[in-house]
């Protein structure tokens, strides 16, 4: 997804108000990057509860960007009980999110 495609989503959400859409886009991507850092830190220190919490927090924003793969992965992590699988899937989540954000 390019920035232009993301902006189209937010323009629709903010009734074609370009300023609001642009402002929201900047804030949400900044927050995603911050949360991504926190998730990365939790994965490295293997804090399972923190991993689940950060993934859960980002799930809603991912749904706004229509990143269905990430939303599905976040749901799986939320329901997952094996620490090993949580670690594995969260790394996958992190990698896809980094790639998506790099396109903006």
């Amino acid at each position: 997804m390019t920035k232009k495609e993301a902006m189209l989503i937010f323009l629709e959400k903010f009734n074609n108000d370009n300023n609001l859409a642009e402002d929201f886009f900047i804030k949400s991507t900044t927050r995603l990057k911050e949360d991504l850092e926190l998730l990365n830190h939790s994965i490295n220190s293997n804090k399972i509860e923190d991993i689940k919490f950060h993934v859960h927090k980002m799930k809603y924003t991912c749904s706004l960007y229509k990143w269905e793969e990430l939303v599905a992965l976040a749901k799986e992590i939320g329901l997952e009980t094996s620490n090993q699988n949580i670690n594995l899937k969260s790394k996958q989540f992190l990698s896809i999110l980094q790639e998506n954000l790099s396109k903006f």
């Binding site: 959400k13 903010f14 927050r31 927090k57 980002m58």
Partner: peptide, 13 residues
């Protein structure tokens, strides 16, 4: 909500 995107968007609507 700790997700500020959610707060901003719902607040706007």
């Amino acid at each position: 909500d700790d997700n500020q995107d959610f707060c901003d968007l719902q607040s706007y609507y």
